[in-house]
Amino acid sequence: MRLATRRRFTAAGILGGPLAWTLVFMFVPYAIMFTYSFYTRQFPTMVPDFQFGNYLALFADPQYYQVLLRTIKIAVLVTIAAVALAYPLAYFLVFKVASARLRTALYVAVIVPLWVSYLLRAYTWKTILGSEGVLNSFLVWTGILDQPTDLFLYNQFAMVLTLTYIFVPFCVMPIYASLEKIPASLKEASKDLGVGPFRTFLAVTLPLSVPGILAGATFTFSLTMGDFVAPFLVGGADGALIATVVQSQFGTALNWPLGSALSMVMLFIVLTIITLSDRLERAGRLDLG
């Protein structure tokens, strides 16, 4: 069939470039990384090998698994905080702002910071929370504190605060979208049946916005897991996250096999979370018809 053949050539032309790109710059690098994770380090380079020492070190050496646990803790805290802040904001925009024009303006205002310099947004928290920073000088200036405190910066609180700040817009977007999609008739039906506003929220609105919450949480958790900028800027001595450790393996520590193994573990965790959230979302959809 001439038409079918022609179509196949067109398809190959369109698909060829992107497919080659993902193969060369994603699949091949992951394969190499996977291979390196079994190599043995021989300072300052490495030798081909097939051993699980790099993975075992991760679970045997408290230096590593403690950082991994801390990372997961921070990521969970940030995810909860970001969703908790994003939800009322999205809810307010969708249901309480009467003017469509104003709603659009506010929505754009909320999601625009999402793309504005990550580094600078993290950095400003350093200038705010530091011992010579805005917050301290404000408190001293107003007389609440006698002298600046270093309680604000260089700890896990500062890290959670900064990362939450960065990821709130990530959560607002999908939650907003999921709230927008809820048909008005559903809630009206609930109201008609004499269900109060708060119970309507629990029984109708909240379950239907679960896909949005899941999407936002996935973004936040996964990107927090892999962040090394916030720990560097506002995390203290106990502020190293798993990404910081990985980063140093390819820098000062020069241990590529271990770094590759750690990266593989991170990749695995991220893929697991994506798959889980995908499953949960699909299951949720089925439940809701």
Partner: peptide
């Protein structure tokens, strides 16, 4: 994938008319 968030649709949705105002949370 759960994360293919579409900015365009959402910004459009934001302009859609919605007569209904949701549960009367304060």
């Amino acid at each position: 994938m759960a994360v293919t968030t579409d900015i365009g649709v959402m910004a459009s949705a934001a302009t859609a008319r919605r007569p209904w105002r949701g549960p009367r949370l304060s």
